[in-house]
């Protein structure tokens, strides 16, 4: 359950943030580094891995964007954005120094505490790695608290893998990374195939002691869950991050409802058991 991001604040209030840095990731996707203009707000800023904010371009609108940065880095907020609609198109066209609005953070978070002492598998597809990156940072900062850490990351082709520049560093810090793509030429040294194929053959120390988190297209997440269950990982240890359009982010507007849930309030991160019975119902 989401906590109030700022108690006693009007939840409709956007805070001005300045674009302090832009990282071009893959075609159509970039990461913005944002800094609050109001130092008081900057001082109270904190988020949990998996949460999102509403980024606002005046005159264009708001869009829910997952936070892809390090929760320990309190100075700036990093958010990875795919140019997909009006607002994100506008966000991806802004220069350094431009001011936009930010509300949040909102929503539920990944179970980083529950994962302590266990093996953790992260399964990311495409831009789904963005909301999982804060988990990676967190776990690598507290590496000794976790057992085996594995990231299975899928993309359409090698050029569309997100954050490849960080893989080497993460590997040295103790993250086992298995990239896999749908299409590749001879130059690609990684795997070809879907993430479920990799999960299918991944060596598991103890399935009962393994936690899995996934974010990506719904179809991918569904089959990832089926594969994980087939490998003996308990349903209660599976987590996924869902996506629907969000308009208010504070469970007042109704847009992001999915079955009994408001994705902005109970989600975006869910325990698989919460969604198991409704995930494959058409047009829910």
């Amino acid at each position: 359950m989401a906590a109030t991001c700022e108690p006693n604040q009007n939840p409709w209030l956007s805070h001005s943030v300045r674009i302090a840095g832009i990282t071009r990731e893959i075609p159509g996707v970039l990461t913005l580094d944002l800094e609050f203009e109001d130092s008081a707000r900057a001082a109270t800023w904190a988020f949990r891995p998996g949460q999102f904010t509403m980024l606002y371009v005046p005159g264009v609108g708001e869009s829910a964007i997952s936070i892809s940065g390090d929760a320990a880095d309190t100075g700036r907020i990093r958010q990875t954005i795919r140019d997909a609609g009006n607002v994100t198109h506008s966000l991806t066209g802004l220069p350094i120094g431009a001011t936009i609005g930010l509300r949040g953070p909102f929503g539920s978070s990944w179970p980083v505490d529950e994962c302590r002492g266990r093996d953790v598998i992260l399964v990311a597809g495409g831009i789904g790695l963005a909301p999982l990156r804060p988990v990676i940072y967190h776990m690598l900062h507290h590496r000794q608290q976790y057992q085996e850490l594995t990231l299975i990351v899928g993309a359409r082709d090698p050029a569309l893998l997100l954050y490849p520049g960080e893989f080497e560093h993460w590997r040295t810090q103790g993250l086992n990374i298995i990239p896999t793509v749908d299409h590749a030429d001879e130059s690609w040294r990684g795997g070809v195939g879907v993430v479920t194929t990799v999960l299918e053959r991944l060596w598991l120390r103890s399935p009962a002691e393994t936690m899995l988190m996934t974010c990506g297209p719904e179809v991918m997440m569904w089959y990832t869950m089926q594969t994980a269950l087939g490998r003996g990982i308990p349903a209660g240890s599976l987590f996924l991050s869902m996506e629907r359009n969000m308009n208010c982010a504070i469970a007042l507007c109704g847009h992001c409802q999915f079955g009994p849930y408001f994705l902005c309030r109970e989600g975006p991160v869910f325990r698989f058991e919460q969604l198991r019975s409704i995930l494959r119902i058409d047009d829910l």
Binding site: V29, S63, I81, A84, N86, T88, N245, M246
Partner: peptide, 8 residues
């Protein structure tokens, strides 16, 4: 037509 969209 959309005015806002899903997460990036």
């Amino acid at each position: 037509q959309n005015t806002t969209e899903g997460r990036g």
